[in-house]
Amino acid sequence: MRTSITTCLWALACTFTSASSPAGEPPLTFGRVASLELEAALAKKPSIYLKLDLARQVLEIKARGMVLDKVPVKACQGAARQAFYVKPQPMELRLPVLWEVVTGPGDTDREVIAPATLRPARRGDEEEEEPTPIPKGTPTPTPTPKPETPSRYRVELAGNVVLWVTDRLPAASLWDRFRQAVREGWAHVFRGEEPPQEPPGVVLLVDTEDARRLHHLFRQGMQLLVVAEGS
C-alpha cells in the first residue's frame, strides 16, 4: 500500500512543474502550493483541524498552523462496496482535498442524564438529610461500568465520503468477501433485506489508543486536510 502511494508520488513529482525549494523540503509542485494555501485558510480560523499526510503516514492535530499532536498512521486504504466477482479497482484520491465532518462519533457516542422529576432544592443553611440506612444483608449494587471509548468508528464527511478509523483492518480476502456476499444474498432472498449501500470511503488504520484519542475530535464541522507532501 505504502509502496503504491510512494511510487505514485514519485511519478507526480517528476511529472508536474516544480520550482526550486529549500533543502530538506519537498519539491514545490502545484499540489504542494495548493495544500499550503488550503492550510493557510484553515489557520485563519480559531478552530482545531486535522491534517492527514499520506506520504509521511501521519495525522496531525493542528491549530493556527502549528502541530499540537501527531498520530502515526499504519495504513490508509480505500473502501468500497463492490460485487465480489468484480476485480477491485484502485481508488483515486485527488490531492490536496479538504473534507468536513458531517457526523462523527464525537457527536453521537454520548451518555445522557435525564432525571425524571426534580425535587425542591435544599437551602444552603439546611442540614443534609441522613441517608436511609441500608438493611443488613443487602447485596452491594455493582456500579455500571463506564463504556470504553471505541477504537473502531465511522465518520461521515461532506461530499458523500466515509472515513473509517480502526485499529484492525476488516477481513477483505476473496474468501472473506465471498462469505460476506453470500450472507448478504441470503438476507436479501430469505429476509427481504437490501444489501447495505455505503458511499466510497477511506480506511485509516491506527493504534487502538490513538483511535480512542481521536474519537472525540471527529465531530460536526471538524476540517480534515488530506495531502501527500512527504516533507
Binding site: 499520506l54 473502501a79 484502485p90 484520491l93 456476499a181 453470500v182 448478504e184 444474498g185 436479501h188
Partner: peptide
C-alpha cells in the same frame, strides 16, 4: 446468492495531484 451481495472491499488508494 453471492451475486446478490455487495461486500466491503479494500482497495489501494492512489494519490493523484491536482
Amino acid at each position: 446468492l453471492a451475486r446478490l451481495g455487495n461486500p466491503l472491499t479494500l482497495v489501494p488508494l492512489v494519490a493523484v495531484s491536482q
